[in-house]
Amino acid sequence: MNYFLHIIVLLNIYIILILGANMTVGMAGLLTLCQAAFYGIGAYIGTMLLMQFDLPFIVIALIVSVITGVFSLLISYASLKLKNDYFTLATLGFQMIIFTILYNWVDVTKGPYGISGIPAIKILGLWSLKGVVPYAIFTAVVMCAMVGIFVALKKSPYGRLLRAIRADETAVKALGRNTSAAKTRAFFLSAAFSGIAGLLYASYVRFIDPTSFTLNESLFIICALFIGGVGNAKGSIAGALFVVILPELLRFIGLPDAVAAPLREIIYGLALVVIMFVRPQGMLGEEMSK
């Protein structure tokens, strides 16, 4: 039972992460490869706040959102100056730089040794979440709230503006819209989503080190997003289900870990290639073309 709940917690965290990626990749049509960097920033900032201050979750989540959001301004700046591949490459660079800092700035992040003994989340300053049951419930609540925010944004005129930018940014500018500001906000939201996922992860696992926030993790998130589908919430949920459940299924079949781990990755890779052929927008995604 606890094992099952553990999977639920991971699933909730991944849904939030993938929704974050979906904000930029799916809604605004900008391919970023640095989601894990924001995830990591959220986890480390969240850890420091949890360890230093006795604050309720909502306050910490807000601070984490704002700080990761501020980091996203670097990506926004890149998106103003660079297009397509160059922009994606810059986000890859950002990912590498953040990882290097997390790994090397030992005084603050303890580098490769990681930080352990991270305190649990407190709700309303009263209850400390202990054990997997409350975490499963709590992360589910946060996940639902995030899905709600995503859907509301998608349906709002802001969502429409992002879709318009995805189709033809030049035309949108000529129609009097500040597209840079709109994109900056999308990056900010995307980073904030990832940051909150990082905070949940850190306080649940109670130990973090930089290896959870690598370029591979970013690629993994993008894989999950594209397998599930871009542009809407159900695609992100499907993507998270796929990548979280598949390894468990393989374990269920009884494959040894040395085989199951690479096999799982090969299946992800194959799924990704096949989906690019059959439905480039992902299983449940929305048509990306003009």
Binding site: L31, N84, D85, T88, L219, I222, C223, F226, V259, A261, P262, L263, E265, I266, Y268, G269, L270, A271, L272, V273, M276, F277, P280, M288, S289
Partner: peptide, 26 residues
């Protein structure tokens, strides 16, 4: 041939990369 977008070929390249590396791990 399907005139897929740049992003589609990039994502499929990520897929191929994952497959090749993990075949080696296997």
């Amino acid at each position: 041939k399907r005139q897929s977008s740049v992003n589609v070929s990039l994502i499929s390249a990520v897929g191929v990369l994952t497959i090749l590396v993990n075949l080696v791990v296997l």
